[in-house]
């Protein structure tokens, strides 16, 4: 049976830059090519940071900085 290798993008220590909806380059790291938000398992964020990430991405989508799809 093949073992699936998952890469963790974020940091568990949350030392990364402040999660802000205007920091598009940073937020793009946590989106799939289809524009979906990566799960906590993939980002490696704590619960609090993942919630901040979700809010920031949704705000950025609302103002047309990030796409909803694709």
């Amino acid at each position: 049976m093949k073992r699936r290798i998952r890469t963790v993008i974020g940091s568990k220590n949350c030392d990364d830059p402040v999660i802000d909806y205007k920091n598009i380059e940073y937020l793009l790291k946590f989106l799939t090519p289809q524009g979906q938000i990566l799960s906590r398992r993939r980002t490696g964020f704590c619960n609090q940071c993942q919630k901040q990430l979700k809010t920031a991405i949704k705000r950025a989508r609302h103002v047309g900085l990030l796409p909803f799809v694709g």
């Binding site: 205007k22 989508r61 047309g64 900085l65 990030l66 796409p67 909803f68």
Partner: peptide, 11 residues
């Protein structure tokens, strides 16, 4: 003014 940029989708 923050920026003048292309939108991710037309508004």
């Amino acid at each position: 003014r923050w920026d003048e940029k292309r939108l991710a989708y037309p508004i």
